[in-house]
């Protein structure tokens, strides 16, 4: 019996790797930097070989900030990061700003910026980049792939074993997708204390995750308030203090 249970367990483990729920042996998922967030994911972090989506509000750089803090956690040997930014059609043009990345611990020298003109070009860039094994990660910023294109991107990421991070443009109801995880990141007000001014402070919601939770916490969703500590260059969890101002960190 035990033998059979072992076999089933082994098969499950293999299946979960094939489903990109867990990272394959010898490879680690990209930790989000907080045990609570990592714990909500079966893989213990963002698994390579798939897409991870981040939703945000209009004219809010909170999801960008969260993604940048993830990029800062990529090992230097992972290779450069391709950041493909499609400016929103109905808002003033903006671009990722390297000094801002520095503030979040990411190294702009490892960044390659692509600025396609059309959604078609942007999807093509993402697909090509996701297939390239020499990149550390691919960020699709402001790109909402239609369902078929989303599936194509997911397959490309699986083929290249690439970490794809999609920052979706703000939209009323995000379409269903094949991405491995989906997050919503929103800015939270933070009060400047003595001698410093507000720190980046976000509410991070895990909307869905393939494979569900690992530690029994929040089966496949959860809500956390996090704050960026620019002294330690890492995220801290904020205790949910009703709706009050963020007072203490972790």
């Amino acid at each position: 019996m035990t033998n059979r249970a072992d076999t089933i367990a082994a098969l499950r483990a293999r299946l979960s790797v094939m489903d990109r729920i867990r990272a394959p042996a010898g490879q680690e998922a990209l930790s989000l930097g907080l045990a609570a967030l990592d714990g909500a994911l079966a893989g213990g972090g963002l698994v390579r070989g798939g897409l991870h989506e981040f939703l945000g509000e209009a004219a809010d750089a909170a999801p960008h900030g969260f993604v940048a803090s993830l990029l800062a956690r990529l090992p230097a040997a992972a290779g450069p990061v391709l950041w493909c930014r499609l400016p929103p059609p109905d808002a003033p043009a903006d671009k990722p700003y390297a000094p801002g990345l520095v503030c979040l611990g990411a190294d702009p020298d490892r960044l390659i910026l692509a600025r396609p003109r059309t959604l078609e070009d942007a999807l093509w860039v993402l697909e090509e980049a996701l297939r390239c094994p020499r990149l550390g990660a691919v960020v699709g910023d402001g790109i909402a792939p239609p369902p078929v294109a989303g599936r194509r991107l997911q397959l490309a990421a699986e083929e290249g074993g690439m970490l794809g991070l999609l920052i979706l443009p703000p939209q009323g109801r995000p379409p269903p997708s094949t991405a491995l995880t989906r997050w919503r990141v929103r800015a939270l007000p933070d009060r400047p204390g003595e001698g410093d001014w507000g720190r980046p402070c976000w509410q991070v919601d895990l909307l869905r995750a393939r494979g569900g939770g690992r530690m029994g916490v929040a089966a496949d969703s959860g809500t956390w308030k996090v704050v960026w500590d620019d002294a330690a260059f890492r995220l801290h969890l904020v205790e949910p203090l009703a709706d009050g101002p963020v007072a203490a960190a972790e």
Binding site: P92, K95, P96, P108, D109, W197
Partner: peptide, 15 residues
């Protein structure tokens, strides 16, 4: 050198 002396935004509007 990416010298950052004061907080800088992550998205820069251009123009």
């Amino acid at each position: 050198t990416w010298q950052v002396e004061a907080p800088r935004p992550l998205l820069l509007l251009d123009p």
